[in-house]
Design a protein around this nucleic acid. Sequence first.
RNA 1: GCGUCCGUAGCUCAGUUGGAUAGAGUAGCUGGCUACGAACCAGUUGGUCGGGGGUUCGAGUCCCUCCGGGCGCACCA
Length: 565
Amino acid sequence: MNYKLTIAEKIAKATELNIEDIQKLIEIPPKPEMGDFAFPCFQLAKTFRKAPNLIAQELAEKIDKQGLDRVETVGGYLNFFVDKASFSKNVIEKVLNEKDDYGKSEIGKGKNITIDFSSPNIAKPFHVGHLCSTSIGNSLYKILSSQGFNCIGINHLGDWGTQFGKLIAAYQRWVDEEALEKEPIKELLRIYVKFHDEAEKDPSLEDIARQHFKNLEDGNEFEVKLWQRIKDVSLMEFNRVYDMLNIKFDSFAGESFYNDKMDAVVEELKDKNLLVESKGAQVVNLDEYNMPPCIILKADGATIYATRDLAAAIYRKKTYDFYKNIYVVGMDQSLHFKQVFTTLKLMGYDWADDCVHIGFGLVKFADKKLSTRKGDVIFLEDLLNEGIARAKQAIEEKNPTLENKDEVAKKVGLGAVLFTYLKNNREREIIFNFDDILSFDGETGPYVQYSYARARSIMRRAEEIGFNVAPDYSKLNSQDEFELVKLLASFNDAILLAIEKYEPSVVTRYVIDVAKAFNKFYNLCPILSCEDEGLKAARLKLVEATTYVIKNGLALLGIDVVEKM
RNA sequence: GCGUCCGUAGCUCAGUUGGAUAGAGUAGCUGGCUACGAACCAGUUGGUCGGGGGUUCGAGUCCCUCCGGGCGCACCA
């Protein structure tokens, strides 16, 4: 039962206004004592030529009060108080009926959405910055899927480009095969950094690197074999992190995949008279859109990432017939995507409007920059392991008798990291600091997981006792209980808002609110020791409903719950 | 210089698309475990929402301008 809609219907009947317009105006008052829902009458003042407070008063009299406790007016606001008993009963029973499906819907049924996320560069460290795209993309995947959209997760691996020429040149000169077997990326990073150091002294190395890449493009056996080897060992490392975070992709079509699909794009651009020469390069002019040109072929005739992104977008449209084509890539590339999307539009593809770049802020250090070339990076795996280690330590301090400590530490440690990455507005940059990212107190992943564990602990006790009395929801009327019920009711609203804004943090904030409301309720309302059996049963149902909402909410963020911690 | 994102409590951040007395966490101070789990809860201190103008019933939110910062602006991705 949707109370917002019910109230909108009542107002519509009394005013002859459009239900949808009314629904948009209905809001939740800032303080619960003001009401459960509110309708501001200020905008009606002009059409009715009356003061807002008078309109509110008249409406208050005309409104059908059925299902409502009461209606009040404060200034120009019309405040609705729902009937707590029936509201609580409806909400809690709905959650307990739907269980793991609570929050889901079918609004996206039949619509495909491609999500390009994570997309690390082969042979380069998978570092703490990559978790932005990885966590946001994975969460959007889960959030959209929960509403019935058919998502295709694409890991657009950076497995092509001039840096492979450098790597091959460096490999021939300085590689330590033993180290490459043991810690491939670290060894590849070492020789990559060394290449840049040596190239400063001897610029001819750059030419050698360019030649290696040319050979690779031409399919020369030596380069191709080495490239494949580098790709294989890199993927092994990446998969270790993906396994840890339980992230799956539907496609690993990276840059090299589009190698044979770019000529067609260049031909098409030529046919459509979009390609012009500029400073030796072949570009699409975007002057009239106030943008620098989109480079298609470099002066040396080689393709560039814009060419690949054009080929990839066209391929994705053909293959998946997407409803939306999402790129979860840093904000520093927003101009690039604007150029690519505009070029697609110029090619006559109206679906260019369905392509969206979901940008995010970068991870930085307080004092220096992350730089692959200089080797100043923190590996993502190291951050995750540090989180797990700290969670383990917390368990040893707080709950030393816990049985499966390692498994719990893993879920709590990873939860803390993911939660931090998904907590704030994605466009905000993250200043890297172990203590901030791995905090366990206050509005954090472990706080929410802890709330869940507490709730589950009560449920286990109730089952042991075999308590089974019919709940009396009419007794569930303290403010703390009702606030929690109202929050549980708004789960789907939070998900829809998150989709509208492509913003997982909406869900993160929502689960924090649920955990807070639960802990407050938990501290103030006795549950198992409640003497009134009907109320005790109702409170138990509320606890159980809360466990599903927290579990489902965290799942949308890619975070697991734990029974005990 | 142009484009873009941002500036809210000591610190880290929310702010439901223009609504009611601007909210959390953290840090500081105070109180609560022989208790359904203290990784918790309650109370308290802390604000010129960067400055100034404008739009209107109403602005942290929209427009203009200035100040301060991040990122981008042709052959890297």
